[in-house]
Amino acid sequence: MRRIAAPAARNLSKVARVMFTADGDEVAARAGASVAAALIAAGRPALGRSPRDGRPRGAFCLMGVCQQCVMRIDGVRRPACMVEARAGMVVESLA
């Protein structure tokens, strides 16, 4: 399992962190962050692929509208921008 160092790590020092896994990699998130924000902060902006052309897609609206950041989060398809990252969460890109 790789550990992804968050580039905004200096910001993480002041608040609690939670660890979750994204496609098998351990990711550190600031407590209170959405899964999408945590993955952007961890330098992983690509969250899925478009269905027809298979092109990479990332979070876009961050308000639950565009559905581009839908991932399987603890087994349920949800927009990653609308789900708060929790310790031990299992996050997977959709096939």
């Binding site: 910001n11 209170g32 897609r57 609206c61 961050l62 308000m63």
Partner: peptide, 19 residues
């Protein structure tokens, strides 16, 4: 392309995610 987001999306990251 991942990394392109809306302006309103950016305000959400800045204001409620503090990043």
């Amino acid at each position: 392309t991942p990394g392109v987001i809306g302006l309103a999306a950016a305000t959400i990251l800045l204001k409620s995610q503090r990043m």
